[in-house]
Nucleic acid binder design. Structure first.
Lengths: 136, 136
DNA sequence: TACAATATGAAACCGGTTATCAGTTTCATA
DNA sequence: TATGAAACTGATAACCGGTTTCATATTGTA
């Protein structure tokens, strides 16, 4: 269950070379095509799905934008930290905070749910953006 | 700007009778049809949109969920609730928990980030699934 | 009542994502 | 090497939540 394939390698390599960016499936497919390593759309989605299941990838949907964004979850050092995604500017912030850990422990103990810090992204608006015009 | 219409009344009445539930547009349309008060899909969406603008309704659109769900915002004293998504079984759980609210307040005060409970989903593994074989 | 403003709903459309399925690739074994 | 079963691929079609269109119907006021 899990052969190594040309496409899988190409895709993972691409994600690594572009870690830090927010990639939409569509963009990935097109970029690979431009590089001369076209991979079928369906295959791209399948690999992204697999990486998600393995927790190697994060998926989130930016407000207003159509379609989900993906970002490799690798690295991310030793200390546990949490992710905050600003819906306005798209910035993914890292948060190290004892309170978050405490909450997740609480949810585990009181509600029986194991929160995966790797996969979880808190959505909202960052300090800079909430300072600006709150339009809309 | 804003005639009172049969459909508007029916929809709001339905929402009131079902406040507390998570309603997806699709479900609303079907339920009304079953009650013999069918309203066109487009009209349902239009009314939901209007209620949202007026702040009478809250919309939860989170990844992992298929389609947005709506809930009347009336009362205001009402508890917020949060979403837990189990990566194993795909179940979307609703959590009402003072601790979560406290954390979000903390993140706002200490880290300047406004967390959107509407869009945030905590990913992880639910009680049932973590009981079973941890396979994979 | 008359009529302009507004609302309705069937159907077409949209764009991201998923399912289908015949053909291809991988890899352990012979 | 050669084989074959399991796994993977990819073009395409289907799906799905949501939006737009537009001819028709309803509302409220003058």
């Amino acid at each position: 269950m899990g052969y190594q394939t040309r496409q899988g390698v190409i895709l993972l390599d691409f994600l690594r070379r572009n870690s830090g960016k927010h990639l939409r499936a569509e963009d990935i497919a097109r970029a690979l095509e431009d590089e001369g390593n076209a991979i079928g759309k369906a295959t791209v989605y399948r690999h992204l799905e697999k990486l998600l299941e393995q927790g190697q990838l994060r998926k989130f949907s930016a407000e207003g934008e159509s379609g989900a964004c993906y970002q490799l979850a690798e690295g991310c050092g030793q200390h546990s930290h949490y992710h905050l995604l600003c819906s306005r500017c798209g910035e993914l912030l890292h948060l190290e905070c004892e309170s978050v850990e405490r909450l997740f422990r609480h949810i585990l103990q009181e509600h029986g749910f194991v929160v995966s810090e790797e996969r979880t992204v808190l959505h909202g608006v960052c300090r800079q953006c909430s300072g600006k015009e709150t339009t809309q």
